[in-house]
């Protein structure tokens, strides 16, 4: 379905994840974050950049990967994106929800 975020019309699935990453801009990410009651800081964007890099290299995301990322530790990750960090961070990053169980 279509949704208007930061004056841009984007396609999202029923959970609110962008279905076409090419429609993502930082402003779109910011709007999604606001809807999730997350105020984006530089640290948040660093994590989003890490997620984008993983996505472009087609590497799966996991909490173990976050631990090894060198960008952020797990505790901070949970603090920055409360209530399901990987789920929320990927939504803000405009990529599909991770399918992994770990």
């Amino acid at each position: 379905m279509e949704k208007k975020l930061a004056k841009i019309t984007v396609n999202v699935n029923e959970e609110g994840y962008l279905t076409d990453f090419s429609q993502w801009t930082k402003e779109v990410g910011n709007e999604i974050a606001k809807e999730q009651e997350i105020e984006m800081t530089n640290k948040h964007w660093e994590v989003i950049a890490y997620i984008h890099e993983k996505f472009k290299n087609e590497e799966p995301l996991s909490i173990r990967g976050i631990k090894k990322s060198g960008v952020i530790n797990i505790k901070e990750f949970y603090q920055l994106f409360p209530g399901g960090p990987l789920k929320k961070a990927t939504m803000i990053a405009g990529i599909p929800k991770p399918k992994s169980c770990i």
């Binding site: 173990r64 631990k67 530790n73 797990i74």
Partner: peptide, 18 residues
Amino acid sequence: KLDMPPIDEFLEILSDSG
């Protein structure tokens, strides 16, 4: 192969995750 952490690391992840 599935990137499942060993027990000690998993305990750390769980604890860090709250």
